[in-house]
Measured scan of single mutants.
Amino acid sequence: MTEYKLVVVGAGGVGKSALTIQLIQNHFVDEYDPTIEDSYRKQVVIDGETCLLDILDTAGQEEYSAMRDQYMRTGEGFLCVFAINNTKSFEDIHHYREQIKRVKDSEDVPMVLVGNKCDLPSRTVDTKQAQDLARSYGIPFIETSAKTRQGVDDAFYTLVREIRKHKEKMSKDGKKKKKKSKTKCVIM
């Protein structure tokens, strides 16, 4: 069974824990209790493949930012979460993405942009803004509501699919490099 290491990042209060708990335990946590770091595991079937999701729910508070490099190193894919009623959390996505790329030393890291709290009427981040940002990053965008469960499975499952595509691409690139290195030079 394939294991996928997913990391949920975003500013404090955007609903990272609520999304994760909704996926794992099928219930909505409405009281806000700032996370330092929590880890969850769940076995699911995605596109006919049974897999184990190892999900790291991270601290959004700035005082825990020193811990970010460590979990970013171990993560295979990242859910970059903002709240649709919090423009600052949307603007912060850029910083999370840049930090992930720096730590992973790669421009090509599996990510999904997630606009959470889409059940709320007080939207300050337009869907088109988020779609445009995701398009500019070359990553999928999904709106979710941890409260109603809308888009929750889709967000995590899409990230797994992005990781699969990335692994497939990397193995193809690896095979191309191996083929090239088999060419021999004969000096007579």
Rank of each mutant, 00 (worst) to 15 (best):
K16L: 00
D126E: 07
Y137K: 09
C185V: 15
E91C: 04
Y64S: 00
P34G: 02
S106F: 08
G151S: 13
I100E: 01
T58M: 00
H166C: 08
K176C: 09
K165N: 10
Q61K: 06
Q131M: 08
S17I: 01
K179N: 04
S171W: 04
A130E: 10
E3C: 05
Y4H: 09
D92A: 09
I46H: 13
V109L: 04
T127V: 09
M67H: 00
D30L: 12
K175L: 08
A83P: 14
A134C: 07
E162G: 07
L19T: 13
F90D: 05
D30C: 09
I36E: 01
Q22L: 03
L19K: 15
S39R: 04
P34W: 05
F156M: 07
K184Y: 01
A130R: 14
K117F: 13
K175C: 05
E143A: 12
V45G: 12
A83V: 03
Q131Y: 04
K128Y: 06
M188N: 14
T74I: 08
V160D: 04
S65M: 09
V114F: 10
F90W: 14
Q43T: 12
A130Q: 08
R102D: 10
V152A: 10
I187R: 12
K165S: 10
K176S: 13
V81K: 15
Y157L: 12
F82G: 15
D108M: 11
E76R: 03
E62Y: 03
K117I: 15
V103W: 08
K165Q: 07
C118N: 12
A11T: 14
E91R: 14
K117C: 10
R73D: 03
L23T: 14
I46K: 08
R161L: 10
Q61M: 07
G15T: 01
L56N: 01
G75Y: 06
I46C: 09
G75S: 04
C80W: 02
D57K: 00
H166N: 07
E63N: 04
T183Q: 15
G48E: 10
F90L: 14
N26S: 12
L159A: 04
C185S: 14
V45Y: 07
L19Q: 13
F78S: 02
S106L: 11
Y71D: 01
H27N: 11
V103S: 05
P34E: 04
R73L: 06
L6G: 04
A155P: 07
A59I: 00
G60P: 00
Y71E: 00
T87R: 10
K176I: 05
D33V: 01
R123Q: 12
Q25D: 15
P121I: 08
E31V: 10
L120N: 15
V109C: 07
D30K: 12
V186H: 15
E3I: 05
Q22T: 09
T183R: 11
Q61P: 03
I55K: 00
D47F: 13
S122C: 09
L133M: 06
Y40N: 00
L120K: 13
L53E: 08
M170L: 07
V81D: 03
P34F: 06
V44L: 13
V81H: 14
L120R: 13
G10T: 01
R97Y: 14
V114T: 03
E107A: 11
Q43S: 13
D69C: 02
E76W: 08
G60R: 00
D105K: 14
V29Q: 11
S122L: 08
Q129F: 15
K16D: 01
K182S: 06
K182P: 05
P34A: 07
V9C: 14
K165D: 11
V125E: 13
D108E: 08
T183D: 15
K169I: 07
Y157S: 11
T158A: 14
I142F: 08
D153W: 05
D54C: 02
C51A: 11
G174P: 06
S39A: 15
V109D: 02
K104Y: 03
L53G: 12
G75V: 02
G12L: 04
T35P: 00
K167V: 06
L133V: 07
V81Y: 03
R73M: 13
A59F: 00
R123V: 10
K128H: 05
S136A: 13
H94V: 05
F156K: 00
S65F: 06
Q150T: 12
L53W: 07
H27Y: 12
T35Y: 00
K5E: 14
K182Y: 11
V81G: 05
K176R: 05
L52F: 12
L113S: 03
V152Y: 13
F28L: 03
E162D: 06
S17Y: 01
C51E: 13
F82I: 14
R102I: 07
D126L: 08
V186G: 09
Y4I: 13
T35I: 01
A11P: 05
K16E: 04
A18S: 07
Q43I: 07
E63D: 07
Y96L: 15
A59G: 08
Q70R: 01
E63K: 05
A66S: 07
P140R: 08
D153L: 07
Q129K: 13
E162N: 11
T58D: 00
T158C: 09
G115Q: 09
R41P: 14
K5Y: 01
D33C: 01
L113P: 01
H27C: 13
I93Y: 11
M188I: 03
D47V: 04
Q129P: 11
Y32L: 03
S39H: 01
S17A: 00
G10L: 01
I142C: 08
K128V: 05
T58V: 02
I163M: 08
L159K: 03
D105V: 04
H94P: 02
G48K: 08
D173Y: 08
T158P: 06
E107C: 09
A83T: 12
S122F: 09
T74H: 04
I163W: 06
K177S: 11
I100S: 02
G75H: 06
M188Q: 12
F78R: 00
D173Q: 04
